[in-house]
Simulated assay, not measured.
Amino acid sequence: MDIGFLPSMLAMGFAAGVLHAFDADHLAAVSGLSGSDGKRSVRFALHWGLGHGVAVIIIAAAVIVFGAAIPERFSAFAESAVAWMLILIGVHTFYHLWQQHKGNTVHDGKRSNAMLVGLVHGSAGSAPLLALIPAANFSSPAWGMLHILLFNFGLLLAMLGVGATLRRGLLIAANRDGRLQISLQGSLASFAVGFGVFLLLG
């Protein structure tokens, strides 16, 4: 590859990561997690982004450095797991809201399972392809892996922005009207469940 194209190729990696963060299934996952506890939306987004990044880096290293192929059965399993995770996230949020309505306290001590959700998302279909196809054009595996790192950095920054926006929106809703906040949380849960069902049926 012509060295003159190197900066633009690396910039494309960062931009691709930013755009990839706004995939509908990613937004459904982070918004669904945030539906149960809007105050921790940024933390959920961070954990999800880190999990996603770890998966893409592992897959990238296997393909770029070691020349391995990604089994089709693995990708299909990961995509199915994403759908079921979205449904479970939404159902958990509805359960959380119902317990709140009854005046019970729900402890979400392990909601950092957002990292596990991100790990599965990063293993499924489009992320490895979007990141690895341009990386394969680099003559050096080191440059290819740098492209992957920039892809993940762009995705993480964008997802943190999504988390901050969700947190701000839920706090505004809570300050104005408790019913508005609950309605918004319910909508986020419905989005997660609905998109999970859509992925299963698609």
Rank of each mutant, 00 (worst) to 15 (best):
residue 199 L to D: 06
residue 191 F to K: 00
residue 200 L to W: 04
residue 148 I to D: 12
residue 94 F to I: 12
residue 194 G to E: 04
residue 8 S to V: 15
residue 94 F to C: 10
residue 17 G to H: 08
residue 3 I to C: 01
residue 100 Q to M: 12
residue 134 P to I: 03
residue 1 M to R: 08
residue 188 L to V: 02
residue 9 M to W: 00
residue 35 G to L: 04
residue 189 A to D: 08
residue 189 A to I: 05
residue 154 G to D: 10
residue 4 G to P: 01
residue 87 I to E: 04
residue 90 G to L: 09
residue 181 Q to W: 04
residue 8 S to F: 12
residue 13 G to R: 02
residue 77 F to L: 15
residue 103 G to T: 03
residue 89 I to H: 01
residue 166 L to S: 02
residue 23 D to I: 05
residue 40 R to S: 13
residue 168 R to G: 00
residue 96 H to D: 13
residue 134 P to R: 01
residue 111 R to I: 05
residue 45 A to H: 07
residue 86 L to W: 01
residue 97 L to V: 10
residue 200 L to N: 07
residue 161 G to L: 11
residue 98 W to C: 04
residue 137 N to C: 11
residue 91 V to P: 06
residue 15 A to V: 15
residue 190 S to F: 14
residue 104 N to S: 13
residue 162 V to R: 03
residue 128 P to Y: 06
residue 96 H to K: 14
residue 170 L to A: 05
residue 45 A to V: 06
residue 187 S to D: 00
residue 156 L to R: 04
residue 116 L to E: 00
residue 113 N to K: 01
residue 26 H to F: 07
residue 158 A to R: 00
residue 175 N to Y: 06
residue 190 S to Q: 01
residue 190 S to M: 10
residue 184 L to D: 05
residue 149 L to E: 08
residue 128 P to G: 05
residue 98 W to Q: 11
residue 73 R to K: 12
residue 128 P to I: 10
residue 152 N to S: 15
residue 157 L to M: 14
residue 200 L to Y: 07
residue 55 A to T: 04
residue 81 A to V: 15
residue 28 A to T: 09
residue 109 G to W: 14
residue 118 G to W: 07
residue 45 A to Y: 01
residue 168 R to H: 14
residue 177 D to E: 08
residue 181 Q to M: 14
residue 105 T to L: 10
residue 53 G to E: 06
residue 9 M to G: 01
residue 60 A to R: 01
residue 87 I to T: 10
residue 49 G to Q: 11
residue 51 G to I: 08
residue 195 F to T: 03
residue 106 V to E: 07
residue 17 G to L: 05
residue 135 A to Q: 02
residue 124 A to W: 06
residue 59 I to P: 05
residue 132 L to W: 01
residue 72 E to C: 00
residue 76 A to K: 12
residue 95 Y to G: 08
residue 143 W to K: 06
residue 39 K to D: 14
residue 10 L to Y: 06
residue 111 R to T: 02
residue 185 Q to A: 12
residue 86 L to T: 01
residue 195 F to C: 01
residue 63 V to D: 05
residue 159 M to T: 14
residue 18 V to L: 13
residue 166 L to N: 03
residue 89 I to E: 03
residue 86 L to D: 03
residue 30 V to R: 05
residue 115 M to D: 04
residue 38 G to A: 10
residue 154 G to S: 14
residue 168 R to N: 04
residue 148 I to W: 07
residue 141 P to C: 05
residue 192 A to I: 06
residue 106 V to H: 12
residue 173 A to P: 00
residue 31 S to L: 10
residue 51 G to F: 02
residue 37 D to P: 02
residue 21 A to D: 08
residue 153 F to N: 00
residue 197 V to R: 08
residue 30 V to N: 05
residue 97 L to G: 12
residue 152 N to Q: 08
